[in-house]
Design a protein around this nucleic acid. Structure first.
Length: 819
DNA sequence: AGCACGCCGACT
DNA sequence: GTCGGCGTGCTC
């Protein structure tokens, strides 16, 4: 007789039981079940209902006798949630990132669609006079009666707290004293999302806030947001106010806010209108690029290309026309952009050109919006997806092209499990679909450019700006000389001079500072010498508590020296000023100016990133002080001066990529100046006027930078000449965590793999998070496959060993940030 | 991860 | 005879 079986993987499995299980497809479900479908299956000793995904379907005539196969319980959707090419990614990703099927599947689906199974116990015909011979059975009945005759299974079990609960329940069921009811719940449904709005008049709420009648800061934040936005979804308000649902519940209880279901036409693009644009006539350079790229596209083979094009060389127009060509071939495209540059401008250009054929995917959309966009894509109603990292999994069939813009950006590497690289996934996906993968960047990552130099990737250079706009002039200011001349402020004389000039001429300036409160490295203000780890040549981090310097790479540590090892001056200090301080200084020194600040502190909730930039532009504010965020995207025609306050602060991060990042950031920041008709000036302040990355940035010479950087990478064996993984161990007991890391390292070494190097254990840069201590190992190998194999062994080892010590382990292979 | 099973000691 | 505690091993 013929039986159909399905290979199924479970959601929320741990690595220990994360494998394919074979289930029997019941006859009435044959035809409804297909590969990629989401199903409910009984699993484990209690046959608890679990959510699973069908990976294979095979008609079978002889089943393994020794295994007792169970039947699939039901199909959740009449269509597959996972498309075929995404399923093909599963096995590869599971191995590559040492994670579970479930981790990956969750990346591929919009958040909030996972089902919750609810199992309830109901009391039937309660009769006080009946007592059962087993006291636990009476306890169950009593407890159930006390909570009103109905209770969730787990809750009741915990309430009773004794062993063999399930057995007693079964017995009671057979006696018809109770019954069990199962139901399923899903967070996001197709049309409704939960929203909140003010339940009282605005004036009243404003009054109360002003009179400090609302004491809890969480509640104030929620109310403030609601004063500005009439209706906000629950998910958004939780995120942007940084509060939990209970704060909302309290507010609702006291009548400040009310919940309701909003039926939304959840189209994130609908609120804006975009003029339709036609393709621009390409410049000669664009024409050449397009010619080559179209050819690759036509060949219908897996190919990688890199456009190395300076800012303003018109890469986006090339992307747009290439995507058009892809459409003409009857295929669809994915366009990845860094989260940060997913501003309305970029989306706007796509929508203007392609209208309703565009879907967007990024984390700023609400749960409902994401679900809707995902559905549109899945149903084949759009032809191109513009999105951040996770859009690489967009459920597109008939994929013909993937473009990764700003390829060097770190946001393409995920920092939470699975710690995947969207670039690697894109390679795999393009390989599966035999199609073109195009990278674009003004400052390609060393790894990618290396592959281009080696001939693995085809390189396309774009060197001219179409409007023949001039590149800004870049000037270096040596801060050591400033100090000698008695200037102890963060601003050099030159920068001050130019700032004043700009204010007088009513032109705008941007002051750029690296990440606020940046990690503390020690350097000499006299000669610029930075203390580096003798093993790793990486700037060491200062720890106030112990007054020691630590290399976060290998764990090497020394006392903080009192004198500069190079010039013996005592003028040695740690570095780190914040944007807030700078804002104050500017106000103080230039009292007639207007200043605006932008960093993670001033970015509150939705759109305010946008609002600050718009204010800066429209109100013609003199100076903007900011971090990373201001480095990209926007064009400010009236900005003619960019000042980089401390170029060194990026250079001396404990990371082998610090030079690369310095160069990229400086180049990008410089690109902000002079986007209009007036020529721009860039002033870079530094203590390292001789550093190659800073000099190359001044000369805007990528290739020169690359040539020097690649030599250093080769000499020290950093990527692309090796693969590096960071393995973090965490747990409640400091000692146990350290021991686990040490033992695992020992074990791997004893097995004698000579092809890998393990450094550490050393404390993580953040040694304690949420009451858990953190230690880490750095594992290096030339060969990625060997590295993955060793890490997998480590990962499987820890489950057996540290069960009782609750030590957890997480692996990041080739992280973007070493910190 | 759950959850049952098996074994032991304790208590009615 | 029944209950709770704890270690072990399996889940189609």
């Amino acid at each position: 007789m013929n039986i159909t079986t399905a290979s199924i993987v479970l959601i929320n499995a741990t690595r220990a039981f994360d494998k394919k299980y074979t289930y029997v497809v019941p006859e009435d479900l044959i035809g409804q079940i297909c590969v990629g479908c989401r199903v409910l299956v009984p699993f484990g000793n209690g046959s608890k209902v679990k959510e699973g995904f069908v990976l294979e379907i095979n008609p079978q005539d002889n089943l393994e006798k020794s295994i007792e196969y169970k039947k699939i319980k039901s199909v959740l959707e009449p269509y597959p949630l996972l498309k075929e090419d995404n399923i093909k990614l599963l096995e590869w990703m599971k191995r590559q990132y040492i994670c579970t099927y479930s981790d990956i599947i969750k990346c591929m689906l919009p958040p909030g669609i996972s089902v919750k199974t609810i199992k309830k116990v109901k009391l039937l015909n309660y009769d006080k006079s009946i007592t059962y011979k087993k006291s636990n059975m009476n306890k169950i009945i009593h407890n159930l009666y006390c909570v009103g005759g109905e209770c969730e299974y787990e809750q009741l079990r915990d309430m009773c707290g004794f062993k063999g609960f399930k057995g007693y329940i079964q017995e009671l069921c057979e006696l018809s004293a109770i019954s069990i009811v199962e139901s399923y719940e899903q967070k996001v449904n197709a049309k409704y999302i939960k929203g909140v709005s003010l339940a009282r008049p605005r004036e009243e709420v404003i009054d109360e806030l002003e009179n400090n009648a609302v004491k809890k800061i969480q509640q104030v934040r929620v109310l403030e947001i609601l004063l500005d936005n009439e209706i906000v979804s629950v998910a958004d308000i939780k995120r942007f106010a940084g509060v939990t649902a209970s704060v909302l519940d309290t507010l609702s209880k006291y009548g400040y806010i009310k919940y309701f279901d909003i039926e939304v036409q959840r189209n994130p693009l609908s609120s804006k209108h975009y003029e339709k644009t036609e393709p621009l006539p390409p410049t000669a350079e664009q024409e050449n690029a397009l010619l080559l790229l179209k050819q690759k596209l036509d060949s219908k083979a897996y190919k990688e290309c890199l456009i190395h094009g300076i800012t303003g060389s018109g890469k986006t127009e090339v992307y747009l026309q290439l995507i058009s060509h892809c459409f003409e071939m009857g295929k669809k495209a994915i366009m990845l952009v860094p989260e940060i540059s997913l501003t309305p401008q970029m989306v706007g250009r796509f929508v203007s050109r392609f209208g309703k054929r565009v879907a967007v995917m990024h984390s700023r959309l609400s749960l409902g919006e994401r679900f809707d966009q995902w559905r549109l894509i899945s149903e084949g109603k759009v032809d191109v997806v513009v999105g951040a990292r996770s859009a690489i999994f967009a459920p597109i069939s008939n994929l013909g092209l993937i473009i990764i813009d700003e390829e060097h950006e770190g946001s393409y590497k995920s920092e939470s499990t699975p710690k995947y690289s969207a670039k690697e996934v894109a390679q795999k996906r393009c390989e599966i679909n035999s199609t073109l993968l195009l990278y674009g960047s003004a400052t390609p990552s060393v790894e990618t450019y290396y592959r281009a130099v080696e001939g693995e990737i085809d390189l396309i250079e774009m060197k001219n700006r179409p409007k023949s706009a001039e590149l800004p002039s870049v000037e270096l200011v040596d801060m050591r000389l400033e100090l000698e001349n008695g200037n102890r402020t963060p601003f050099s004389f030159r920068l001050m001079e130019e700032l004043k000039k700009n204010i007088d001429n009513n032109q705008q300036s941007i002051l750029f500072l690296n990440r606020r409160g940046f990690s503390t490295f020690v350097f000499c203000r006299n000669c610029g010498y930075t203390i580096r780890c003798p093993n790793c040549n990486i700037a060491m981090t200062y720890h106030t508590k112990s007054n020691r310097l630590i290399c976060h790479y290998c764990g090497f540590t020394v006392m903080n020296p009192a004198k500069c090892p190079s010039c013996e001056s005592g003028n040695i200090r740690y570095f780190g000023i914040g944007t807030q301080k700078i804002e104050e200084e500017v106000k103080q020194r230039l009292p007639n100016s207007t200043v605006i600040r932008m960093d993670a502190d001033t970015i509150g909730y939705k759109n305010s990133h946008e609002e600050i930039l718009n204010r800066f532009k429209e109100e013609n504010i003199n100076v903007m002080v900011g971090t990373q965020m201001i480095a990209k995207g926007h064009d400010f025609p009236n900005v003619t001066l960019v000042g980089v306050l401390a170029a060194d602060s990026m250079l001396n991060v404990s990371d082998f990529r610090s030079s690369e990042r310095t160069f990229q950031l400086l180049t990008q920041v410089a690109g902000r100046a002079g986007r209009g008709e007036i020529g721009g000036r860039v002033i870079i302040q530094t203590y390292n006027t001789e550093d190659y990355s800073i000099i190359a940035a001044r000369n805007q010479d990528y290739v020169k930078f690359y040539n020097q950087e690649i030599l250093i990478r080769k000499r020290l064996g950093y990527p692309p000449f090796s693969n590096i993984a960071i393995v973090v161990f965490n747990g409640r007991k400091d000692r146990a965590v350290f021991d686990a890391a040490k033992n695992i390292k020992q074990e791997v070494i004893e097995q004698g793999s000579s092809d890998i190097v393990i450094l550490g254990p050393s404390r993580c840069p953040m040694p304690k998070i949420a009451n858990k201590y953190r230690w880490r190992l750095v594992v290096k190998a030339m060969d990625l496959d060997i590295l993955i194999d060793e890490l997998t062994k480590m990962s499987d080892g820890i489950w057996k060993k540290s069960k009782d010590d609750d030590v957890m382990m997480s692996i990041d292979i080739n992280p973007y940030n070493m910190l």
